[in-house]
């Protein structure tokens, strides 16, 4: 077994990320962020919306993922996301606009079901914005909040 992970991030529409030789993956699990290193025990988890970080060759890449599953078997990590995008792909102006719209919808207190979906889109927009804004600054591997490595 190699000391590296092969990582695939796939959505219904496309393969977002597919690389070999990855050192670490930090994913937004349903019960909080979890880090995957090589030789991880087999694992299946639900993902929540949040930031997914992949470290390869000391370089860290951030992606926004929204829900889905992650399966870890041996040194293979497969992430089936409901939707995912690279930090560089996030259009900050549009994300900000969407956030403002969602915030307005939440604040105006629309009907129940709508309120829920408005809150959900507010959460999404906030996450996209946060990840998008951070794309400039590259940080060292392994530092980040809520990083409970197994």
């Amino acid at each position: 077994m190699a000391d590296r992970l092969s990582v695939e991030i796939v959505t219904g529409e496309r393969v977002v990320y597919s690389e070999e030789g990855v050192e670490m993956v930090v994913a937004p699990g349903a019960d909080g962020a979890l880090g995957i290193l090589p030789h991880h025990a087999p694992l299946v988890t639900l993902l929540s919306a949040g930031e997914l970080r992949v470290t390869k060759g000391g370089q860290e890449r951030a992606l926004a993922v929204f829900g889905g599953f992650m399966e870890v078997t041996g040194d293979r990590v497969i992430i089936l996301a409901d939707s995912a995008e690279h930090a560089e792909e996030i259009d900050l102006a549009r994300a900000e606009e969407a956030r403002a719209r969602a915030a307005a919808a939440t604040a105006s207190g629309v009907a129940d079901g709508d309120l829920q979906s408005a809150a959900a889109s507010l959460r999404r927009a906030t996450i996209r914005l946060r990840i998008g804004q951070r794309r400039g600054g590259r940080r060292g591997p392994g530092v980040g909040p809520g990083n409970n490595e197994v």
């Binding site: 699990g29 349903a30 019960d31 979890l34 025990a41 087999p42 694992l43 299946v44 988890t45 639900l46 599953f69 078997t73």
Partner: peptide
């Protein structure tokens, strides 16, 4: 043969 760890639990997944 795999013994999976499930998060949060198998039913939810």
């Amino acid at each position: 043969y795999r013994d999976y760890i499930f998060e949060p639990n198998p039913a939810a997944v």
